[in-house]
Every structure is written in C-alpha cells, then in structure tokens.
C-alpha cells in the first residue's frame, strides 16, 4: 500500500496536468475552429480543445478511443489495425532479442574463459557501445538489402546488435562473481571447468542475467522501431510513427508511441515473470 498509493497519486496528478496541458495547448486552435454562432463559454472551449482532430496534445482519453477504434474497427489483418503493426514490431523485437541474448551469453562465456578474448575483445565490446549503434540502422538495412536480405532479418540484426551488449557485460560480471572462497571450495572437489561452469558460474550469474535482460528487452523495442524507419515506412509501429510525422497525423503518432511503450513494458514483464519463476525455484531468493 505504501508503494501503490504514492505512485497512484503521482499518476493521477500526471493525468490532471495532461488534461490541463491539452486545454492550454489546444485552446487557441480550438477557438479558431469553433462554430462562430455556437456558445463560447469556458466549458465549450474545453470540450473543443479535448476533441480536436489534429490536436497539439491529445488527451489520454482521445488516444485510448483512437486505439480502440483502430483495433476493433478494422479487420485483424488490415494494415490500418494497430494490433497488426504492433505484432510486426514485436516479431522484430523478440527475434532480435533472442539472437542478441544468445550471442551475448556466448561472448561472455568466451571472455570469462579466455584471457586473450578478455584482453582484446572486451575493450571493443565496451567501445562498441559508445558508438550510437542505432545510428547504423539505416545503413545496415540498406547494406543487407543489397545482398538480398530484406524484411525481418536486417531489422532483427539491428535489435540483436543492440541487445547483446547489456547481456555480455552483465554475464561477464555474473560469471566472474563467484567469490574466492566459493572457487576454493570447488577446487577442493577437484572440479573440472565444465562442472565449475554448470554448478557455480552459471547459477551465480543468474542474478546478473535478469537485470541485463530487462535492459535488453527495453532496448529491443527501441531498436525495432528505429529499424523500421528506413525501410520506406512499410510495416510496424516505427513506420506508423514516421507516416504520422509525414502526414501530420498526430493521433497516429501518439497511438504508435503508446503501443510501443506497452510492448516494451510487456517484454519487461515477461522477463520479470521468468525471474519470478526462477526465484520461486530457489526458495524465494535469486
């Protein structure tokens, strides 16, 4: 209760500020558009400001109504259906995320077990992150498109490239986190490398894997959206954002933004679920 109540209050305040903001920002235009013969009292202006076709700031209610109309008002496989667009983006995000996580884990295993890889590869793994990776997105799409790779693959590649890093860094840290005494303990059992990995390094690293996965999951949605931009705005929430931007369709942009955020939260929620399950397996602690 001590957690929910403050959050609920802040959210409520946010919504009130949002509605107030929508009035302030939309009112000047709304007044211009209003029927000159109609009533011009405060409440009428408010009504008009909250129900514009192309508002500066749409109200949360408007966004929700709009999304509902798109999802329930169109056939499921119509490109106008936001749910279909979300599914495209989710497909990219999940495929890329899976690839990135597998790659990230393997890189971490290599780095932890090989001094040469640690010394030579690790600095580059880190440097690779100071590069704005998402900036490569249009180029990757163009380059891969030229060798015949179009559609899901280049987009998933971008997402994978984006999401491998937190996993690698987290897992290198995690696989190295057994303390000296735990390592000595395993040594007294004359433990081979493989057993050491399975019995100690991997289970210890789980506490580091899940936070990394949460970061990767959040990045994967951002990556998927950006990867959808240069494909000529065909499918996905990124494409909807770009189309909305081109044609000044405010509601389309907000709808895509909200769905993308929900998608990110859903992916993170799934990671949390996995974390919770493992935690249960371990008697309540990770």
């Amino acid at each position: 209760m001590t957690r929910i109540f403050p959050l609920a209050t802040v959210m409520l305040a946010l919504i009130i500020v949002w509605y107030a903001g929508a009035y302030v920002l939309n009112a000047p235009q709304a007044i211009n558009l209003m029927d000159p013969d109609g009533p011009h009292n405060f409440w009428a202006v408010v009504q008009a400001a909250w129900n514009m076709d192309r508002p500066v700031l749409p109200t949360p209610g408007q966004i929700a109504t709009n999304l509902a109309a798109s999802i329930f008002g169109n056939p499921l496989f119509s490109p106008r259906n936001f749910l279909l667009q979300t599914a495209y983006t989710a497909e990219t995000a999940v495929t890329g995320l899976a690839g990135g996580v597998v790659l990230g884990i393997f890189l971490a295993i290599g780095i932890v077990h090989s001094r040469v890889l640690d010394r030579s590869l690790m600095p580059w793994v880190i440097t690779s992150q100071t590069i704005p990776i998402l900036a490569i997105a249009p180029m990757v799409v163009v380059a891969l498109g030229n060798i015949g790779l179009t559609g899901l693959v280049p987009k998933a590649a971008i997402v994978g490239y984006l999401s491998f890093f937190p996993v690698t860094v987290g897992m290198v840290k995690g696989l190295r986190s057994p303390d000296a005494m735990q390592m000595d303990l395993m040594r007294t059992y004359n433990t081979k490398k493989m057993s050491l990995f399975v019995k100690l390094r991997w289970p210890v690293a789980m506490a580091f894997l899940f936070p990394s996965l949460r970061v990767a999951a959040s990045l994967s949605v951002t990556g998927a959206i950006v990867a959808e931009l240069p494909t000529g705005a065909q499918v996905g929430l990124g494409a909807r954002l770009l189309a909305g931007s081109y044609y000044g369709q405010t509601m389309m942009m907000w709808g895509a933004l909200v769905l993308a955020s929900l998608l990110a939260l859903a992916l993170i929620g799934m990671v949390r679920l996995g974390e919770f399950w493992l935690c249960q397996q371990r008697g309540g602690r990770l």
Binding site: M181, L185, T188, R282
Partner: peptide, 17 residues
C-alpha cells in the same frame, strides 16, 4: 585430485540457490 580431504572454510560458503 584423489579428494583425500574435506575442507571447511571460515564462512559456510553454501550456494544460496
């Protein structure tokens, strides 16, 4: 290698999972 001894450390070093 012959696992000739048992070793007890300063801390229990139990694997928490």
């Amino acid at each position: 290698e012959a696992r000739a001894y048992g070793y007890v450390f300063q801390a229990p070093v139990l694997l928490p999972w």
